[in-house]
Computed example of a mutant assay.
Amino acid sequence: MSKEFYSIGKVGEMCKLTTKALRYYDKMGILSPDKVCDESGYRYYSKKNLLSVPIIKYYKQSGFKLEEMRAFLEGTTYDFFDKSFGNKINELNELEKEINLKKRSVKDWHDLIVEAQMVIKNNACDVAVKYINSNTLTFLEQDFKYDYMDSIINIEFTNYIDSIENAITGPVIIHFPSTKDKLKGKCDKVCIMQQAILKCKEELSIDFGGWMAVTCYHIGSHDNINDTYIKMEEWAKDHGYICSKDAYERYVTDYWTTNNIDKFVTEILIKIEKKS
């Protein structure tokens, strides 16, 4: 192999590294120059020494820190490699889970924003009938005081999710056990529901969907949402449907997304059956 030595500038050019990075590698003890001139302080590297650079880059690509690389480059046992690489795989698996969780949270929220945009753009507030797909949600029974902001951005529910070591995604859904009481301002108990990202124990889960529903989007403040309920009930009666006594509100966009209550989008769902 060539006995030629290369200056730090030349090494940076050959290996696509900055002189700052090379000096830092020297400081960390993973790539030091073969010789340093006493008078000028210039650093010189042999070709053999530079062959460590592709290995360092590969370790870096694999997620190893400089401190972790040192033992590999100095030479170690296969057992040490086996343990170190196994630990790195476990570390990256955990990182992958964390990234996937964040990615799903952002994607689900983005989907809701797109849905709300389409509803507002097309003023899609007509009553319709559709099948609600089956899903399993996590839930918490709560008192209800008609303070929508407090119920949707829900500290108690957030603390509950933390306590069961889970994470949530998608829209908040509130189940009102009695539509009649809700419209009269007499509803004092509700069930807050949302999609859990991690699998929940059976006792912490509730089934949602798997039935036909009369649905309608409500655009704007929750203060006048009763008007949409009345419209839905009248439509169902005129079209030969019987509404269940309970109802669900699915908050597509709300206080989580915007302070402009005129841009809130809520989907109301009421289970129905066709009159015989």
Rank of each mutant, 00 (worst) to 15 (best):
Y241I: 00
T158V: 13
F81V: 04
Y241S: 11
T19A: 05
K3M: 15
I192K: 09
T266K: 05
D188L: 10
R250T: 04
K83D: 05
D126K: 14
I270C: 10
I164C: 11
K65P: 01
L92N: 12
F139D: 03
V127H: 09
K237G: 03
K237A: 05
I152T: 06
R104I: 15
R250C: 13
K182W: 02
V127D: 08
P54E: 01
S84V: 03
M118E: 11
L269M: 14
F139E: 00
D227A: 05
E267I: 07
R104A: 11
N123R: 02
D188S: 10
I8W: 01
L101P: 14
L140R: 00
Y160A: 06
D111Q: 08
S32E: 14
K88M: 07
Y255P: 01
G220M: 11
I270N: 07
D143C: 11
E115K: 09
K121E: 04
D150K: 15
I155F: 12
D79T: 12
D34K: 12
E233P: 05
G209M: 12
N123G: 08
F264M: 11
I174C: 07
V53R: 12
I174G: 08
K145V: 00
C191G: 04
L183R: 07
C216I: 11
G220K: 04
K274R: 12
L112W: 01
I261Q: 02
A128F: 03
G170R: 13
D108V: 03
K130W: 04
I132Q: 00
C15A: 10
E98H: 14
N133Q: 15
V214M: 09
G86E: 15
T76K: 01
V214G: 05
Q194N: 06
K3Y: 08
N49P: 03
R70P: 02
R43V: 03
K35C: 03
I56W: 00
F80I: 10
C187D: 02
P54F: 01
I164G: 10
K199S: 09
K237S: 02
E91P: 09
K103W: 05
T215Y: 10
G29T: 15
D262V: 01
D82Q: 14
F81G: 05
K184S: 14
M1S: 15
T76Y: 06
L66T: 04
F176N: 02
N123D: 13
I99W: 09
G75F: 10
K88S: 10
D207L: 02
P177M: 01
A167C: 05
Y59A: 01
S163N: 10
G210F: 07
S84M: 14
K201Q: 14
E68V: 00
W256F: 08
G210C: 06
I99P: 00
L183T: 04
N166M: 12
V127Q: 07
L51I: 01
S178C: 00
A116S: 15
I272W: 04
I272T: 13
R23N: 08
Y148T: 13
V119N: 12
S205C: 07
K97S: 15
I219E: 13
D254T: 04
K121R: 12
K237Y: 15
I161E: 00
Y241Q: 11
K274P: 02
I153C: 14
T18L: 09
Q142L: 15
K10S: 06
S40L: 09
I113C: 13
T19R: 09
L92H: 02
F208G: 03
L112V: 06
Y146K: 04
G185V: 04
